[in-house]
Simulated assay, not measured.
Amino acid sequence: MEVIGRRARDRVRSLCAPFGAAAVLAAAVTCLAVVDPHEPGHYPACPLYYLTGLYCPGCGALRAVHDLAHADLAGAARMNLLFVFCVPVVITLWTRWALRSWQGRPTRPDIARPAYLWGLLAVAAVFGVVRNTPFGQFLAP
């Protein structure tokens, strides 16, 4: 009887990290859903944009989160298309993390492989450059 109780406690304990991360993310999304980043002065400006007038790959992400929280997919895509494409990837990775934790299997850091990180950095860099060119203006927030 004690073995079953210990197993159940271990499973619940293993879910603390993924669900803790989800709770923090849910709190941030709730804050962004309530306090509109489209209104000037609610959040600080992007330092790169403030200093240079150039959009970084993350510019518009807060507004995209706000739009997604209000079920406005088109508005979110207009703010930061790269971010919108990354949301399903992050949800998939989180689901995999939670499922593997529940099953008691080790969570392998597949996302931290150097090839994936360099690829992500390259995509973000290209996105950041293209959105600041005349032919990439449709990517600017």
Rank of each mutant, 00 (worst) to 15 (best):
A77P: 05
L48V: 14
V90N: 06
D10H: 11
R78K: 15
P18W: 08
P141D: 11
T107S: 11
T133I: 04
A61R: 09
W97R: 05
Q103R: 15
R13I: 02
A27M: 13
I4F: 14
A33P: 00
D110G: 10
Q103L: 15
A125M: 11
V34C: 04
Y55P: 00
W118V: 15
I111N: 03
V34M: 10
L99H: 09
H70L: 08
L68F: 08
T95Q: 00
R13S: 13
V84M: 04
E39H: 12
C86A: 15
Q137S: 15
Y49S: 04
V24M: 13
V123N: 10
V123Q: 05
A140G: 06
R100C: 07
Y50P: 01
F138G: 01
R63G: 08
A22C: 05
V24H: 07
F127S: 01
A64W: 02
A33H: 09
G75V: 03
V29N: 03
L139N: 02
L68D: 00
D36L: 06
R63A: 04
P18L: 07
G60R: 07
G104R: 06
Y50H: 15
F127K: 01
T95C: 12
R78Q: 14
P134A: 11
V130T: 05
R11P: 03
W118K: 12
V24G: 12
L32N: 04
P141S: 09
L139W: 11
L15N: 07
P44Y: 14
G75H: 10
L99V: 15
L73Q: 06
H42G: 12
A61T: 15
G119D: 08
L120Y: 11
D110I: 11
A21Y: 06
D110F: 15
A61P: 03
A23W: 08
T95M: 07
V65C: 07
A26H: 09
L68A: 01
L120G: 15
S14Y: 05
R131C: 04
L73Y: 14
A76W: 07
R63V: 00
A140P: 02
L54T: 02
V65I: 14
Q137C: 05
A61I: 08
V123R: 08
G128K: 07
V129G: 02
R9P: 04
Y50N: 14
A45V: 14
W118P: 01
V126N: 00
D72H: 12
R100I: 00
